[in-house]
Design a binder for these strands. Structure first.
Lengths: 191, 191
DNA sequence: CCGATACGGTACTAGGCGTACCTTAATTTG
DNA sequence: CAAATTAAGGTACGCCTAGTACCGTATCGG
């Protein structure tokens, strides 16, 4: 029997950790179970990651590679609402719960936080800026709306729903309210 | 020696838990230490609260009674910025860190979440709506701006800084950016 | 072929949550 | 006022999990 080493073993551990994450959530993630599922022991894990949080983040990054493609309906409102709905849907999955737990668990270590941010495309402003750029080209929005913090306001407000309400999912009415009562007025107001 | 009972003992436990909370944070809070500091044992604690999260929230509520008074400078921008600065300052204290940890720890139990919300006045929309009402009276804002979600947008964005950046405190430039680039344009745009 | 390196196995320690059980004090009730 | 009930105190658990230590052994590079 061959003994796995280096990258091969590391890969197996990450795969195992990712499976455990979706199965049991971050709270239920145990180093022991990860090692067992990977067919190894805790030593191999601790040689690579300093602790549970770091492993959790590393495993999450492998799960959250699926980048959301940006909708292009020809209407700013529809684009925003659609992207917001996709994000909401993604956050409603067990993976979204994992992300939130991880965000809380990694709050102490700044580098881990950055790693999570990097992994979740929805957090980046690129998607939202791109969407706005097309609206500007169509004359639906002023170019002064192309501002990172402005662009991501809708998704930030949605995240707040999860954080403060502990919501499993945000109802569609909330998304509509965010778009119609805040995001679009904000874009208008920056003219 | 007299043996404390009922409300008196409950009070001592809550006081002890609050002290432990500011000393060691929520992560370092242990039922054992709380009981010891209160001069009793874990039994008395568990007879009153089902677990660590519930006790933590109850203790936090006793700490966070200090309601922020709303500034009234005569200018919407100054009012908003000032209130935001006060909230930022409050969230920068150890107590703010406790609140964030608690928010994460109580994410599973909805009733606990509600209890935290209730305790932190800054989360409520009343403060922000009151501030806006005065601005409307002065003609600085349209009455259509009097909307709970709109009113609290600034503080929600600030919270996001803490959640996603793990910030100890948000720099003043961020507050200014939130006010000038988002909050005020939003108010304008709702005219 | 020979180190050096890293994996596997196992056994620990340490700490904390939550529970069980019993004794003892205070309070309520007949 | 005595008896019954309620609630504290004391203590010892069971259980789980993080993280560490040690050692034999397979693999890899030179």
């Amino acid at each position: 029997m061959s003994r796995r080493r280096g990258a091969e073993l590391e890969d197996a551990i990450l795969r195992a950790a990712a499976e455990e994450l979706v199965r049991s959530g971050y709270a239920g993630l145990t180093m022991e179970a990860v090692a067992r599922r990977a067919g190894t022991n805790k030593n191999a894990v601790y040689r690579r990651w300093p602790g549970k949080a770091a492993l959790g983040v590393a495993a999450y990054r492998r799960l959250a590679v699926a980048a959301t493609d940006v909708p292009d309906t020809g209407s700013l409102r529809d684009d925003v609402l659609e992207l917001l709905r996709r994000v909401n849907q993604q956050w409603s999955t067990p993976l979204g719960a994992v992300q939130r737990d991880l965000l809380a668990a990694a709050a102490a270590e700044v580098d881990l936080l950055a790693a999570i941010q990097e992994a979740s495309a929805d957090a980046g402003s690129a998607l939202w800026l791109g969407l706005l750029e097309r609206a500007v080209a169509r004359g639906e929005a002023p170019s002064s709306a192309l501002h990172p913090r402005v662009a991501t306001t809708a998704v930030v407000l949605l995240r707040n729903e999860y954080v403060t309400r502990g919501a499993q999912t945000a109802p569609d009415e909330v998304l509509i309210e965010i778009v119609d009562e805040i995001y679009l007025p904000l874009i208008r107001g920056r003219a």
